[in-house]
């Protein structure tokens, strides 16, 4: 099975607090890849919930690239939202 998804990438994103890392996790974990998709995505919280770790495995390189690109855009959007409301993001 592992050989069917040879294209892998893990992105670890550190956050200043466990609360913000958890908010990012809860926001991004909702959108699952389609069931029959050729990309698998796993999200988890590491290091006392302060690091958001996103793991991708894909059948083809181009699929890994597009899935990663899309995730990076949404990751940036949730972080920008936190930055837009600093009083609530402590």
């Amino acid at each position: 099975m592992a050989d069917e998804f040879p294209w892998c990438l893990t992105i670890d994103v550190p956050f200043p607090t466990a609360r913000l890392a958890t908010i990012a996790y809860n926001t991004l974990v909702v959108d699952e890849e389609p069931k029959k998709s050729d990309v698998r995505k796993t999200l988890q919280l590491l290091q006392n919930d302060t690091v958001l770790s996103i793991h991708f495995a894909a059948r083809e390189g181009r699929l890994l690239r597009s899935a990663t690109q899309s995730m990076m855009n949404f990751l940036r959007l949730t972080i920008d939202t936190m930055l837009a409301f600093p009083d609530y993001a402590r």
Binding site: F74, L77, T78
Partner: peptide, 18 residues
Amino acid sequence: GAPLVSAAVVARTVAQLW
């Protein structure tokens, strides 16, 4: 899909922040 999720991501984030 992607336009829907773009709005939803912000909605989810502020729902948790606030």
